[in-house]
């Protein structure tokens, strides 16, 4: 299962609830945070690490830009949800996509499905939860307390590849922390307790 975090910023209570309700119906979304105003949300962006932000109003571009510069929050997919854009048919500079709440249900669902797909959501192929041989090797080394760099050296692969393996392991198992992965490895007899304690 994918693990996307979405934020909805919308001052109208009814519309905000509507967007939240729709987003909830997507399995790919795990967390949704709601805000009425952008000001309340900006300081929390580094903490929540959203993949997707629904927001409207055009005045905000500069504010977002200046706040985000220099912050490590990764790539965010911004969706403009102002109803006006529906008429103008153009996407404001800060947004990756415009999605008016006035659009019919199917259009909205299709667009969101496309976004989930682009953001690395669940595809049929991805649904395999079995670890590959390489992933098992990486998992064993993680449990023994090795760092990404050490694992890379040992397996003759780049640290970047190690990170990709780790992400896939976490996605497949639903376990995020090293401590959790270690418990998994022991339960499945991939490593023994002695190996970990040494």
């Amino acid at each position: 299962m994918a693990d996307l975090t979405a934020i909805v910023i919308e001052s109208s209570y009814v519309i905000r609830k509507g967007w939240t309700q729709i987003l909830r119906s997507f399995d790919e979304i795990r967390n949704i945070y709601e805000f009425a105003e952008i000001e309340e949300c900006l300081p929390l962006l580094p903490k929540y690490h959203p993949d997707l932000v629904l927001y409207h109003s055009s005045r905000i571009h500069q504010e977002i830009g200046s706040y985000l510069s220099g912050k490590e929050i990764g790539k965010i997919f911004w969706v403009d949800i102002s109803p006006e854009e529906h008429k103008k048919e153009n996407v404001p500079e800060w947004a990756d996509l415009s999605l008016s709440p006035l659009l019919p249900r199917e259009r909205i669902r299709q667009s969101l499905e496309q976004i989930m797909h682009d953001l690395g959501g669940v595809t049929d192929q991805d649904n395999h939860t079995e670890l590959s041989h390489r992933e098992i090797t990486v998992l064993k080394l993680i449990s023994r307390g090795l760092t990404n760099k050490e694992i890379a050296d040992k397996m003759y692969i780049s640290p970047h590849t190690v990170i990709t393996h780790r992400k896939n392991i976490t996605r497949k198992l639903g376990i995020k922390t090293v401590a959790g992965l270690t418990v998994y490895a022991i339960l499945n007899k991939l490593v023994s307790l002695d190996e970990i304690e040494s």
Binding site: P43, L173, K176, T177, A179, G180
Partner: peptide, 27 residues
């Protein structure tokens, strides 16, 4: 205050892991 807020740890993630271990993997 912003600096304080940005320092966060993985205590939420540990709890999430523990739940999943019990739900999915514990014999």
């Amino acid at each position: 205050m912003k600096d304080y807020q940005e320092e966060h740890d993985d205590i939420e993630e540990k709890l999430y892991d523990l739940k999943n271990i019990i739900i999915k993997y514990l014999p």
